[in-house]
Amino acid sequence: MANPAPPRPAGRSPGRPCPVCGKPAPAEAPHRPFCSARCKQVDLGRWLAGDYAIPGEPVDPLAEEE
């Protein structure tokens, strides 16, 4: 039988790394999943600039005019 993992100390959750800079973002961070307000704004800027895209079906521009 496998040994269960030891419990983590309270308040010491490692959380996930910030998707922008890679620094650890505590689970209790107010800007979660980002480590700071700056990284949150950088991510928003990337979305607004079109750096991120959600894949989908190709669109025929001529078909939309009709």
Rank of each mutant, 00 (worst) to 15 (best):
D43T: 02
R8M: 08
P61V: 10
E65A: 08
C18M: 00
L62A: 15
A37P: 03
L48T: 02
V59W: 05
Y52R: 11
I54F: 10
C18W: 06
R38S: 11
P17L: 07
F34P: 00
A10N: 13
A63R: 14
P26H: 00
G11W: 05
C21G: 10
P17V: 06
P58S: 08
V59N: 00
A25E: 03
D51S: 07
P19C: 06
A27G: 04
G45E: 11
E66Q: 11
P61L: 10
P30H: 12
K40C: 14
Y52I: 03
L62M: 13
P61S: 04
V42A: 11
E28C: 03
Q41K: 15
G22D: 01
C39M: 06
R16V: 10
E64S: 06
P4L: 14
A49N: 05
C21Y: 06
G22H: 01
R8G: 06
P19F: 02
S36F: 01
D43I: 00
A10K: 13
G11L: 09
P19N: 00
P9N: 13
P19H: 05
G11S: 04
G15I: 07
R46E: 12
Y52P: 08
E66G: 13
A37S: 09
E57Q: 12
M1E: 01
A27F: 09
H31T: 14
L44K: 15
P55G: 06
S36K: 03
C18V: 02
G45M: 10
Q41G: 05
G45V: 04
Y52F: 15
D60R: 04
P61T: 08
R12T: 15
D43L: 01
L48M: 09
C35F: 09
P58A: 12
N3W: 04
K40L: 15
A5I: 06
G11Q: 09
P33F: 01
S36C: 15
E28D: 14
Q41D: 11
P24N: 14
C35M: 01
A5V: 08
A2H: 13
K40T: 14
E57Y: 08
A49M: 09
E28S: 15
A25F: 09
P26Q: 04
C39L: 09
C18D: 03
C35H: 10
R38L: 12
P6K: 07
K23N: 11
P9G: 11
G50H: 05
R16L: 14
R46G: 07
E57F: 04
A37K: 11
P33I: 10
R12K: 15
P33G: 04
